[in-house]
Structure formats: C-alpha cells, structure tokens
C-alpha cells in the first residue's frame, strides 16, 4: 500500500531523511517511533503530499508522488496534533465543508455516521471552538476518515489529550484499523503504540533503523528494544 525507496529530504544544507526505505502493506498498523527531530513529521508530510521529497520514490496505493498527488490525496486521511478544523463552524458544518472538497456522495448520511462513530452526534450543532481538546481530536479523526481513506496517517495524535480522551481516540483508531485500513502513526507513547500497532519502525538519524512485528516482542520488552535500537543507530552514526 505504501512503498518508499531511497527517500532523501534536505532543508537547505540540513539533511533530515537520508535514503529512507519503508513499506506498509494493506491493513498494517505501523507505529513510527523515534526521538524528537528524527524526521517523523517530515516523513509523514512527504507521504501526505504536503512536502516534496528532494530525491527518492514514494508510491501510495500504486500512485506516484508528486505526479499523481490528487489520486494519492483522495486515498489519504491525515490527523496531526493540530485539529485542522474551523472553530467558528459547527462539527457538522466542518464535516460538510470537507465532504464537499472530497465530493462525497450522500454526504448527510455519511456525516451522521461519522459523528456517531466518534461519539459526537449529540454535539453536531455546536461550534468547534466550544469543544474540549479531546473532542476536537475525535472530530479530527472523523474529518480524516470522512471519505473512507485507504491509508490513515497520524502525527502524534495523542498530544495534549487526557487519559479519557486518549482512550476514546484509541477506540476510534481501532475501529479504523479493524476495517482493514493501513495506518501509520508517529508516537512517543510506547505502551499506547504497543496496544494499537501491529508493527514498530524506529526512525533515527534520517533512516528506519529497525522494524519489528509487535507480536515478536515480549510485553515488557518494547522499551528495551527501542533503547537498544537508538543506541545502535548512534554508534553506527558515529562510525559513519
């Protein structure tokens, strides 16, 4: 579903991603881990066509970026730590606006179904600026899945959420994953990533340093795996 080959991204003289290779099959839930500044957000922005790679090949659902970006965007849902919602529109109006941009048929029904899915049906007529951070993030998930995308990209979606809001968000993400959608999520929360994801990828020094199925790790071995991978990448980086 997602194929990335030898991806390079430079901002001026600074190289953020260097010869990065990445694959995600249909239905996989990949948690992308890594320290701050590793390039996780940059990587997701390239996958979502918001940023252009300096070099390399990015293919999503068989469509190449940046040449077929409209086809790719039709198949993508994106959630970031910002809600991408308008505070002066109601929940329903926000979804209606995005629904028009995506030319979604039977939009009224779809909006009701999505609002029900994220538990906001009874707040559909309320302005988004009156919502708590957790409710806004749930609506952001609703916005991202409104057009039923094949791939969902999540950039630290739990940032700033309290425990209850995190659990509600996790419930919404499990529903998406259960429908066979491919999910790539960046996170600093290892235990939450372990609960949700089927695979861990560790991004450090501009490359995927390790990739492992969550089922292959012992329940209490995630932190050890993560630390070992980062230490190894630092040692390899030092030798380079």
């Amino acid at each position: 579903m997602i194929e990335v080959r030898r991806l390079l991204k430079r901002f001026g003289p600074k190289t953020v991603l260097r010869n990065l290779d990445f694959q995600a099959a249909q239905g996989e839930f990949v948690a992308l881990l890594g320290p701050n500044g590793a390039g996780k957000t940059t990587f997701l922005r390239i996958l979502s066509s918001l940023s252009r790679a300096t070099l390399g090949e990015v293919k999503i659902a068989g469509h190449l970026l940046p040449h077929q970006s409209a086809e790719v965007r039709q198949r993508l849902g994106v959630v970031s730590h910002l809600p991408l919602l308008y505070g002066d529109l109601t929940a329903e109006e926000n979804l209606r606006f995005y629904g028009r941009l995506y030319s979604i048929p039977a939009l009224d029904q779809r909006i009701s179904s999505v609002l029900e899915q994220v538990g906001l049906l009874n707040r559909r007529k309320d302005l988004v600026r009156t919502f708590s951070r957790g409710m806004q993030q749930r609506l952001a998930i609703g916005r991202a899945v409104l057009h039923d995308p094949e791939v969902l990209l999540l950039d630290e979606p739990h940032t700033g959420l309290d425990q209850d809001a995190c659990e509600m968000l996790d419930g919404a993400l499990r529903q998406v994953a259960a429908r066979g959608r491919t999910v790539v999520m960046t996170s600093h929360d290892l235990s939450r990533a372990q609960d949700l994801a089927s695979r861990f990828d560790v991004l450090s020094r501009g490359r995927i340093q390790a990739s492992v199925a969550v089922s292959a790790l012992p329940q209490d071995g995630v932190l050890a795996f993560y630390r070992q991978t980062l230490e190894a990448s630092l040692q390899n980086g030092g030798r380079e």
Binding site: S48, S49, L50, A70, E71, R73, Q74, L76, V78, S80, L82, P83, L84, L85, Y86, G87, Y98, L101, Y102, R143
Partner: peptide, 14 residues
C-alpha cells in the same frame, strides 16, 4: 493557525 491550510491542501482538488 489551526492547521487548516494543510486541511485544504490535503483535499484532492486542483
């Protein structure tokens, strides 16, 4: 400010 420009740019429209 609320990331909505990204929301617009992510839409599959010209």
């Amino acid at each position: 400010d609320r990331g909505c420009l990204d929301g617009l740019l992510l839409a599959p429209v010209d």
